[in-house]
Simulated assay, not measured.
Amino acid sequence: MIDYELVKTYCLSKLYTEETYPFGPEPLVVKVGGKMFALISPDSVSLKCDPAIALNLREQNPEAIKPGYHLNKKHWNTVTLGPLILEEEIQDMIDHSYDLVVRGLTKSQREQMGLITKK
């Protein structure tokens, strides 16, 4: 079953991530390059998502995947943790969110982090 610790551990296993608490003790905000890619609460995780993919995921699993709670609903999904979502599915969504945020960083930032090589 997917839980808070599993999601937190997987998010923080990504390169150059940082654990932050800008809103107090909860939720945990995980960032890469100073930009948020995951917002983790005890019972859910909000993840950045391509708008077309976000709609598709919500249609496939409407009980577990909803528009981002207190976030831009076009670009964020909130996923309820628990038995309605598979570990592989949540990992794919985390990977997608991380990749979107990394792609949004400047070339210089990605080079400094070693995520792309200088030519």
Rank of each mutant, 00 (worst) to 15 (best):
S97P: 13
H75Y: 15
L86I: 02
L15A: 12
S44F: 05
D92L: 11
L115P: 14
I53K: 04
I116C: 10
K66N: 11
G33S: 03
P22Y: 01
S13H: 09
S44P: 08
K74I: 10
D99N: 15
G114Y: 05
V102L: 13
R103E: 14
S41E: 13
A52I: 11
T78E: 08
L115W: 14
G68R: 07
E111C: 05
I53H: 00
E111W: 01
G24I: 11
N72K: 04
K14Q: 11
S97Q: 08
K48C: 06
Q60Y: 00
K48V: 05
T80L: 15
Y69S: 12
E59M: 08
Q112G: 10
G68M: 10
E59G: 01
Y16H: 12
Q91W: 05
I85A: 06
L12W: 03
I53M: 07
K66Y: 09
S97G: 09
V7P: 10
S41G: 12
D50N: 13
K119E: 15
E18D: 13
A54T: 04
Y21D: 02
P42F: 01
Q112P: 06
K107D: 08
L86M: 14
E88H: 10
V29L: 14
Y4D: 01
Q112R: 15
K66G: 02
P51T: 00
M93A: 06
K118I: 06
C49F: 01
S108A: 11
L115G: 08
D50I: 04
M1T: 03
E63N: 10
I116V: 15
Y10C: 07
L84T: 09
M113D: 08
L71A: 03
N77M: 08
Y16V: 03
K8Y: 03
L105N: 04
M1D: 02
Y69V: 09
A52F: 04
V45G: 04
N77Q: 05
L28F: 02
S97Y: 03
Y69Q: 11
K8T: 04
H75P: 12
V79F: 07
P25G: 00
L39S: 07
A54H: 03
L57E: 09
K8C: 06
K8V: 08
L84D: 15
